[in-house]
Each structure stands twice: as structure tokens, then as C-alpha cells.
Simulated assay, not measured.
Amino acid sequence: MNKKKVVIFGLGSLYKKFEKDIEKKYDIVGRADNNSAKSLEYSNFIEVNNIVNLDFDFILIVSSFYHEIKSQLMYTLSIEENRILQYKFDERRLSIREIRENIGTYEKMNKRDDFKIDKKNLYIFTNDISESAGYIDGHYFYQDIWAAQKILKNNPLEHYDVGSRIDGLISHLLVFRNKVNLIDIRPLNYNIDGIQFICADATNMNGIADDSIESLSSLHVIEHFGLGRYGDEIDPDACFKAIKAFQRVVKSKGKLYISVPIGKENKVCFNAHRIFNPLTFISEFTCMELLEFSYISEGKIKKVLKDEISNEINNISDYSCGLFEFIKI
């Protein structure tokens, strides 16, 4: 039986753990990783952008960052979703025998009549035994903590946010702030204590006065503006209009915390998002000074000194997450 031809994406500890099993099952025509240093370990290593030149049946992602890598492949290389698979290792599951034994043990030990097992209330799970303690979305998990820590340290009288995740940055802020002003063009269908919701178009920030905001954040948001993905009107300059609007409303000495996808080259992956060269992005903030540039790499936040950004760009993979802290001049 002919083995399927696959490109392996992800050469970290998870791949090393299952490498032999994977090699038995598949014909590996190339190995790729966002960490180009892995090229020293594998003779058939291939740069991510060159995957499309290979003859393969599908790409097998062997990484806990499956969702981020999948997005990278689909939106930067235009690879069809049905040709991207996640490696599924043999999961440990509870057997029927084990479940019956657990029921028997529980019934013998239980002394509470109101917590007796009733067959009509059985609700059996078999695969949680092999699950990890939690799932981390590589970009959002780290960027939300990054911004929340900075806002906590700066402790502004009021904070405004444009479009960041409610179950991420906003929920973090509500732990130590009584109120967060949230701006989004989409309606908010919840009434949440502590959130002052403002339904507005962030590309112009109409209705918000010049030099009025002390602290503003917008994480993984403006790269989508003007692409129609969320029902907004098509506008190639929408994200750049938003950058100008942010600078207009932030007051002198006010802070802006913003994140976007970054890579070596500027590109639009229509209709999902844009990817920015960090220097291009920074240059758009003509009324602000960069205080910090960092980016998320391999589950860590890497801080880059200003005079080292140009050289560091060569080490940044497509669809990394850039973290920028600015202050209004």
C-alpha cells in the first residue's frame, strides 16, 4: 500500500515524541517549521514559503499551535483547508470495563442517598483522560497578558479598547478595573458589568474628541478593517485610517497598545487580514514614539531593541504577532 506523501509542519518536542510512528505511516517529502534553525536538524527541511512547490497529498501539523499554523498556511500560502491535517496520536480512552468498575467502586464508597448513581443520569466521557490541562491560543493568550500587565502598571484613570476579545484582554482588565470603555462596530449582545460599550466605526473614531484618551488598546483587530470579512465596507486604506484616528484621539503622553500580524513583507491575505512588516507599521505612527516592540515566537514574548528591529525582521516568520507600545508625542 502506497503511503500518503506529506509535509510535516512543526518540528518541536511533540514531533520528536512521535517521529518514528509518523515515519512509519507516511512518505515525508519535506519538513517545515517557523523556527528556521530547525534546518540544521533535518536534511529535507524546507522554508515555509516553499511548501507550495512540493508534490504532496497533505500537510500534517504536529504542534500544539495547530490553529495558528493552519491559518498561516491558508491565508499566506492559499493552501486548501482539506489539505491541512492535525496529527492525532493514539489517545488513551476509558474502556467499558473501566467505566463499569468505576461505577461499582463509587456505589460501594458512596454514603449520600442524594448522590446515588441513577442510570437515567449517566453522562459518560471516555477521552478526557488523555487531554492536556488546557489549550492556549498562541497569539491571543500571550498578547492579552502583555497588554493587561502594561495597563495594570500604568494605571490610567480611564481605559478605552477597540475590538479586542472580551474573553481575553477585556476580562483581564475587569479583574483590576471598575470600568473599560469598549469600542466596536459590531453590536454587543451582552450586558456586562464594568463594560461601557460604544458602537462606533474605529476607522474614524467619530464622536470621540481629539486628545481625549489617556490609554487605548486594540489587539489583533485593525488588520481586518476594510476587507469585508465582518460586513464592513471594502476600503484598502481602512486600517491606515484607523491608525490616524487612534493618534488623533489619544492625548499627549497617552499610551497606545496595539498588536497585528507581522512578517518580513507587507501583504493582504484577502479577506482574512493583512500582514505588516514591523518597520512599515511603526512608520505609520507619525504622532507617536515607539516605546516597545516585541513579538510572540514559539510560545514566548521576545522583546526587540529599537536599533535591532531591522536585523530581527529576518528571524520573524509570516503571521507572527507583533506587539507595539506607543506614547503620544
Rank of each mutant, 00 (worst) to 15 (best):
F225D: 01
I327E: 15
L256V: 14
L157M: 06
L157D: 10
V7M: 04
V180Y: 02
D128Q: 11
A32S: 15
I282M: 14
I51L: 13
T286P: 00
S130V: 07
G299W: 10
N154I: 11
G104Q: 06
I99A: 13
E68I: 08
S297V: 05
Y106N: 03
I103S: 01
A209V: 09
L14T: 14
K17E: 14
V48N: 04
S36G: 03
V7L: 02
E19D: 07
N102A: 14
F176M: 12
L11V: 03
D161K: 08
R112V: 04
D237I: 03
I208C: 08
V62L: 04
K253Y: 07
Y66Q: 03
A200Q: 09
F293E: 09
R274E: 08
D137R: 04
N189C: 02
K302R: 15
R31C: 10
Q149S: 13
E23I: 10
Y190G: 01
F45K: 09
Q143R: 15
D307H: 09
I329N: 13
I51E: 14
I117F: 04
G194Q: 10
F240C: 09
K24T: 11
F240P: 00
S78V: 00
G299S: 12
D57M: 07
E98G: 05
E308C: 12
V175S: 13
K17G: 02
K264W: 07
A147K: 02
K153F: 08
I129G: 11
Q196P: 00
E91S: 13
I22D: 05
R186T: 05
S218D: 00
T203G: 01
S171H: 04
A245W: 12
K153N: 09
E308L: 12
I192K: 09
G299I: 13
K119G: 06
L73N: 06
L290E: 09
F9C: 02
L14F: 08
N277D: 15
I59D: 03
Y142G: 00
D232A: 02
G207T: 06
T76E: 10
A245L: 12
I282G: 11
V48M: 13
E68L: 12
A32G: 14
I59E: 02
F281N: 12
Y75I: 10
H220L: 11
F176K: 15
L122W: 03
V29K: 03
I166V: 11
R186M: 08
G231S: 07
V29W: 04
Y160N: 03
K150T: 09
E298A: 13
I198Q: 01
S320G: 13
H273V: 09
K306R: 14
G10V: 03
E107T: 10
I275H: 05
L152K: 15
L227A: 04
I198K: 11
V304R: 03
N206W: 01
K244P: 04
V260M: 04
E81P: 01
W146Q: 07
A209M: 05
